[in-house]
Amino acid sequence: MCVTCGCSATSDAHGPGHDHDAHDHSHAADAVLPGARGFGVLRPTTTRTVSVEQDLLAKNDRYAATNRHRFEAAGVLALNLVSSPGSGKTTLLVETLKALAGLCPAAVVEGDQQTSLDADRIAATGAPVVQLNTGKGCHLDAHQVGHAAESLPLQRGGILFIENVGNLVCPAAFDLGEAHKVVVLSVTEGDDKPLKYPDMFRAADLCLITKSDLLPYVPFDVARATANAMRINPALECLTLSVMSGAGFDAWLAWLRREVAVRARMSGPLAVTDAGARA
């Protein structure tokens, strides 16, 4: 191939000015260097712009689409729990798994920079769990989650909880193939958080305001927090609850039941599931 013009000619009579069968043209004479055996050796002297038009997240999004297809075909509700560190995601999960025990099959992917402490807490409830350690990474990506889910039983009518790394910024950008992002905001954090970290509240479908039993002790206004969150994302649902007192917990379980039913219906009567084989 001629590297100067990109054509596929193989002629060895190829000087600065030359003909190809399909087209005639000249290359600049200064681009030609002496070559062996009479061949012209060409060195391109100009840059050329090549259109790329590729999304930076395209690769992650392809893995996410595969995950989503798998979860939907299995009739499983996949939820991506996101929040800043310390909002109570793991405690919420532990109590939710206890409440669902015997009623709804659930599995968990735990994401943390280091340790398996959270996975140990989840495992103590009897739920199958895989711990992902991201090391220096600040978020889970769809490729990691896809592999983690391979070793978990996905049962129709069940739930896969993905507890993301505690970080209210980066995980907003990475689709994991979940049905919904659920953003957890504790009352000890401040009701202006949705305005300060809008990306996550825009990406989420449900906002859980947790630790409501502490409301008498902190200057957190639930109505203001909800208004701020909905200012960022008018379609966001908001629920307030306390795992400690149990207040509002039933509404969260009702939300889960509703979404589980939607996913199970979407998978259709003939859906192939992973249930049983590895459960």
Binding site: D12, F39, G40, T47, R48, E53
Partner: peptide, 17 residues
């Protein structure tokens, strides 16, 4: 998105074959 990139010029000579 990556919109486009500029390629070359080559640092080494290339043979037209």
């Amino acid at each position: 998105r990556v919109k486009d990139i500029d390629l070359g010029p080559e640092q080494e000579s290339s043979t037209c074959a």
